[in-house]
Simulated scan of single mutants.
Amino acid sequence: MSEIKEVDVLVIGAGPAGSMAGKCAAENGAKTLIIEKKSEIGTPKRCAEGIRDSDIEKLGLDIDERCIARCIDGASIISPNNTRAMFTTENIKANITGVVLERKVFDKHLTMDAIRCGCEVMIKTEATSMKRDSDGCFIVDVVSFQEKRTQIKAKIVIGADGPEGHTGPWAGINTKVPQKEMESGVQYEMTNMKMLKNDSLEFYFGSVAPGGYAWIFPKGYDTANVGIDINSAKAQKSAIEYLNDFIADCYATQDAQIVEINVGGNPLCGVFDEITTDNFMLVGDAAGCVNPVTGGGIDTAIESGMIAGEVAAKAIANGDYSKDALSDYVDYIDEHINQKFKKLIKIRDFIYDELDDSDLDEFTKALSEADFDEFSFKNMLKILMKTSPRKLLKLRKLL
């Protein structure tokens, strides 16, 4: 019979959501274990690695300087005809700075913080199945180093295994994403770039990336993450073909070469209808905590993990691991993340379904001439409303 290891809280996945969940559960008194199937935490990276300074401050993060690849001053939006709207600290006062992380270092640091708070971590340990015990707790089958098979019994399991994870379905939660809300992404890390401003993000919209966008996120004076997200239902080619075409046409990448390739899917459906059941919670990408417009999710991953860990520890202390006992987590996610995402989904559908290349050229020109203090979707929509009131009338309620 397999060895059984017993814990209060088992976190499956050591990304930002999982590590933060483990840290917060452990520092609030729960016996906590994080398992990670990969042999190195933080690899391969699955995002462009950017996070805003305002989100860092909101989450109370103290990011080690070794985790930061580049400090960022602003962003540019580039339309199909190369009209550029640039927003930096020279013309925007708030919400315009941030950092591009080195996720291979950052994720590891978050896990180390969890360990320092009393959390146990097992890497190269993969969950292969999960079932309930007679007392309602979960028994998770895992395979670790040298194919060693073990069982872990947990009063609460936190699923932090990403957009293609299995823990949600194992717990009886439907996490299937409709094709129209699933993005296909490819990203190259490239060097020998020729960037107009090598400390500013660039976003390219229109037919260059059907149902999505292309991006350049600087990581150094001539190095950057260059990627693309597309909606396969709207596209005529694969994501990698669109990315290669973008690179061939973009001045910044003409002489650049690839040093790393990352691929993956990105759910833009918003938070799933269910993210908890008895003895179980989903966090981060596994819960759908991914921005439906940008596909970004580092901040919401950390935020969801933080709250899930606190709620889990409280449930352990009270001896009640039911769905009702975990409802504070659901309530928080709904108020602080899901309600915002519901509005962003409407904005996403408008941008990707209603606007053609000529519209985007016109609107980007209007943005380039606009004057506002804070960089936000709300302020951009106000400018666009003035440009084309008829098309944007349907979005008035979002303002």
Rank of each mutant, 00 (worst) to 15 (best):
I230S: 09
Y221H: 13
K219E: 05
S232K: 14
D222H: 11
S184E: 12
Y188P: 03
N192F: 08
W215I: 00
F203Y: 15
G211P: 02
Q236D: 13
Y221A: 12
F217I: 00
S184W: 11
A224M: 01
V208S: 12
N192D: 15
I216S: 07
T223K: 15
Y242E: 06
E202F: 07
T191F: 09
I228P: 09
D222N: 15
D229L: 15
V208T: 09
P218N: 10
F246L: 02
F205H: 11
G227H: 03
A235C: 03
Y242D: 01
I230Q: 10
G220R: 09
D229I: 08
Q187M: 09
T223C: 12
A209H: 06
V226L: 00
I247R: 15
Q187G: 09
S232Y: 06
I247A: 08
D249V: 08
S184L: 11
G212S: 09
Y242R: 05
D249P: 04
F205M: 15
N225D: 08
M190K: 05
Y204W: 03
A233P: 01
A239D: 08
V226C: 08
D229P: 06
D245M: 05
K194F: 06
Q236L: 12
K194Q: 13
I240K: 14
K237Q: 04
I228M: 10
L201H: 07
A233W: 07
S207R: 14
K197A: 12
E241F: 03
S184H: 15
D199R: 13
V226F: 02
Q236T: 10
P210Q: 11
I228Y: 11
I230G: 03
A239C: 05
A248C: 13
K219F: 04
T223F: 05
I230R: 06
A214K: 05
V186C: 03
N225E: 08
M190S: 06
P218Y: 04
D222C: 09
N192Q: 12
N192V: 02
D199N: 15
L201I: 14
E241C: 06
G227K: 10
K234R: 14
Q187S: 09
G220V: 00
N231T: 11
S200P: 05
F203Q: 07
N231P: 02
S232I: 05
N198I: 05
N192W: 08
G206M: 13
S207N: 13
G185I: 00
G211W: 06
S207D: 14
